[in-house]
């Protein structure tokens, strides 16, 4: 090739020497936590109080990894002519061994009962333990970060515009 033989190797070694003089790029993970953005798709949290058992999430899930059981309850509202029927959530479970982390359930939920959390340290020794029942999913709710502000050039977030509309009323 062109030039002095071994020039390419020397150039490579120069890069190595240069890198050696710099700080290492590595983050010592278990000791140093990674900085994850709020949108990071780590685990799905369930805000059980908001769930109305509409089953939209379970139906929209591409691999049907959401299990929901419920029963109907009669609620007697004082003053009302008849007793109302209400859905009560018995079981809500997400099988994270099947989940593809696409976020369609969260998008499909019309009542804001599902959220992404960046938490990711829930590996298990047994695959069956990846099935998170509703109390465990509720616990993840405490780790859900506030959503990031939208770019001022774009449209404001859905939460912002609804809040503004409510305030104007």
């Amino acid at each position: 090739m062109d030039g002095i033989p071994g020039k390419g190797l020397v150039k490579g070694l120069a890069v190595t020497a240069k890198t050696m003089a710099h700080r290492a790029h590595t983050r010592q993970y278990p000791d140093v936590e990674p900085d994850l953005p709020p949108r990071s798709r780590g685990v799905i949290a369930l805000f059980e109080e908001n769930c109305t058992v509409c089953m939209l999430c379970a139906r929209e899930c591409p691999d049907w990894c959401i299990y929901i059981d419920s029963h109907k309850e009669e609620v007697v509202v004082p003053g009302a002519a008849r007793a109302r029927q209400r859905n009560v959530l018995d079981r809500f479970a997400i099988d994270f061994s099947l989940c593809m982390y696409c976020g369609i359930c969260i998008e499909a939920c019309p009542f804001d009962a599902l959220y992404w959390s960046p938490e990711f340290e829930y590996a298990e020794y047994d695959i069956r333990d990846l099935l998170h029942e509703k109390d465990r999913l509720r616990e993840w709710m405490w780790t859900v970060p506030p959503p990031p502000a939208h770019d001022p050039m774009g449209e404001p977030a859905k939460e912002e515009s609804t809040a503004a509309r409510r305030a104007a009323r």
């Binding site: 071994g6 150039k11 490579g12 890069v15």
Partner: peptide
């Protein structure tokens, strides 16, 4: 350029 210098003209790689 680090990556470039490291490998593109490396004699063994060539």
């Amino acid at each position: 350029p680090d990556l470039d210098n490291l490998i593109r003209r490396n004699e063994i790689f060539l």
